[in-house]
């Protein structure tokens, strides 16, 4: 069995780590395991190592056409990710989304963010929802020819747009 990292030497160090019921395996040669600090089992995290290994292949799976994906924003490619284990810019998450999904699944508890949201975004989301519901109400009122109600809705929407226009899309 060859070393997963250098793919040259015989692998003599075999690691298995079970994190949250997911099993990960790595086979390394003596030299690579030393370089990665694997000899010290207490200070070693398989996830960090795996990222450098499996990440590139995961991304390749994502590109179905065969020609290499490149981030239009920053010029980052799959090959770069394979090398660095890091992405180039925020837009890369969009560019490589398909390939990243499997990777994220293997390393995190879920694939959707459930934590903190920047305040400005939270406010804008709430406002957008409010305007949407008012617009629905407005359409309904018009359909029912309840023009008094419609006028109230229209005024409210205009008011929101005027005071918080910077937080609303479009």
């Amino acid at each position: 069995m060859l070393c997963n990292l250098c793919k040259k030497n015989e692998a003599t160090v075999h690691l298995t780590q079970i994190v949250a019921e997911k099993m990960q395996k790595v086979d390394l040669c003596e030299a690579c395991s030393k370089e990665k600090g694997v000899s010290d089992t207490t200070g070693f995290s398989l996830a960090d190592l795996l990222l450098g290994l499996g990440a590139g292949q995961e991304l390749e799976k994502g590109s179905s056409a065969g020609n290499e994906l490149k981030c239009p924003q920053c010029g980052f490619t799959q090959a770069d990710f394979k090398k660095a284990g890091r992405l180039g810019c925020a837009e890369c998450y969009h560019t490589f989304a398909e390939g990243l999904e499997g990777l994220l699944k293997s390393m995190h508890k879920g694939v959707r963010h459930t934590g903190k949201v920047p305040q400005a975004l939270r406010q804008s989301r709430e406002l957008t929802d409010k305007v949407k519901s008012l617009q629905k109400k407005l359409e309904k009122a018009i359909a029912e020819e309840n023009f008094e109600q419609a006028a109230v809705c229209r005024d409210e929407i205009n008011q929101l747009r005027q005071t918080h226009g910077n937080l609303l899309p479009g």
Partner: peptide, 22 residues
Amino acid sequence: PYAFSPELGYLTACPTNLGTGI
């Protein structure tokens, strides 16, 4: 202005820190 996605949370250089970045 932070790099943030409603689905993926705070966007980080390494996918191991994605989401909360914590």
